[in-house]
Design a protein around this nucleic acid. Sequence first.
DNA 1: GGCAACCATGAAAATGATTTTCATTTACAG
DNA 2: CTGTAAATGAAAATCATTTTCATGGTTGCC
Lengths: 145, 145
Amino acid sequence: MVFKSDNDFQMMKTTRSPHTVKTVKSVHAVLEALQQVNHATAQEITDWLSVSKRDNEISLTSVYRALNHLVGKAEVKPLNFNDGQVRYELNTQKMHHHHFVCTQCNHVQVVDVCPFEQILDTLRSTFLIQYHNFEVIGLCESCQN
Amino acid sequence: MVFKSDNDFQMMKTTRSPHTVKTVKSVHAVLEALQQVNHATAQEITDWLSVSKRDNEISLTSVYRALNHLVGKAEVKPLNFNDGQVRYELNTQKMHHHHFVCTQCNHVQVVDVCPFEQILDTLRSTFLIQYHNFEVIGLCESCQN
DNA sequence: GGCAACCATGAAAATGATTTTCATTTACAG
DNA sequence: CTGTAAATGAAAATCATTTTCATGGTTGCC
């Protein structure tokens, strides 16, 4: 699922019972943060919310809960740059890209091209794909010296 | 670097001084385990060594140290199936493949095709690539029901 | 309105993978 | 041999993440 606007988000309601509709504060806040902060950790999302959205301040616990919820629905995908913590990104077509990570300085370079559609199409005949990650790890230009 | 045999491994010596040659037991043991156990965790490597190689039994601490050493030299690459622990794989051409991971049952399906050479070639003009990971996450056939 | 059930929340505690510390042993150079 | 540096393992520390638990809010239903 992809949110292009807040209006789209309003469509995302959880039904408590056939007659109930609920909007979860922390889920909304986390999605808002992820629209602003690229491949952020749970802590970074919490920090961003505490600085930028005083009215939407959320505990680290709730951020983790919201992230797990969103990952379960494949609205957010976890990334791994091998730095010991999980980073998160909106799983939208618009945002779709990959990463080059420098093992020395941890610089992350966004790679915009994604030529993986053919292999994904093959997998799709068997699997229900929720997201994919492609990370290239190595040394960036300045760290090669 | 790629080890195709134990002979190749014997070439991998660390020089303590210009006149010194050293073979590290734990590094050897971990490489041996990784040739047998697919995408193993540090704990699984330790367990395998304790069962299969009584004479090469190594503490979990040393396994972590050897793994970090090997990842630093890009002889081993860390994998992440989003299950909260790091898995490791030999970074050899022969072993090269990717993974489909089911979010429900954690089944891992090996994907042998790798059509990423063109994008990697582009990156190579700027970056020194040590390894790349490509993981597709979703639901396998039986878990879609 | 008011009760009951459910859900969201946050603080603190627990967990669990990984790293660090530290004391001991091993291996090599001289 | 002997001194030095690296390797090792057990235990402690660390740190990201999850769980527990107590509380308050929201909705459905009477």
